[in-house]
Amino acid sequence: MQSRSIEISVGAFILLGIVALSFLVIQVSGLTFADARRDTYQLSAQFNTVAGLAPRAKVMVAGVTIGRVTEIHIDPVSVRAVVDMAIDKNVDYLTADSIASIKTAGVLGEQYVSIAVGASEDILKGGDRIRDTQSAMILEDLIGKFVTNFGDKK
């Protein structure tokens, strides 16, 4: 009888462990598997500056995440930053005249790539490049401009 109660309590213990792990997996991590495992295709875009954008940053259309930044490197010819992105396979509405811009979520939030979809008939495929880009706004530059303008007026 005593060994039976041990069996039950150990069983409950292991069950609790499974419950805890599934809680962490489902509720806490939101089941976001590593991106490589999802079906994606590659897009790239060139920016004058990426200022603070990091690999694994989100790629969003209208505020909805559709992919991730996989790699950021520099193009030695144009000396501009090239951002490679992995976009979900089921996103098949990115037109060739889409505009990619780097934005910040809130004042202190993280940076992400926002894509505004255009009206062209051509759809971007794997390996394509987004031509139209807007670089990140750099706070220091803005302040610098503002101060110089302010100084000029006087």
Partner: peptide, 15 residues
């Protein structure tokens, strides 16, 4: 609270 958590926690990396 939950959505922020779910967006930043990675299954492989963190859990």
């Amino acid at each position: 609270f939950w959505s922020n958590m779910q967006q930043s926690v990675e299954l492989g990396e963190d859990v």
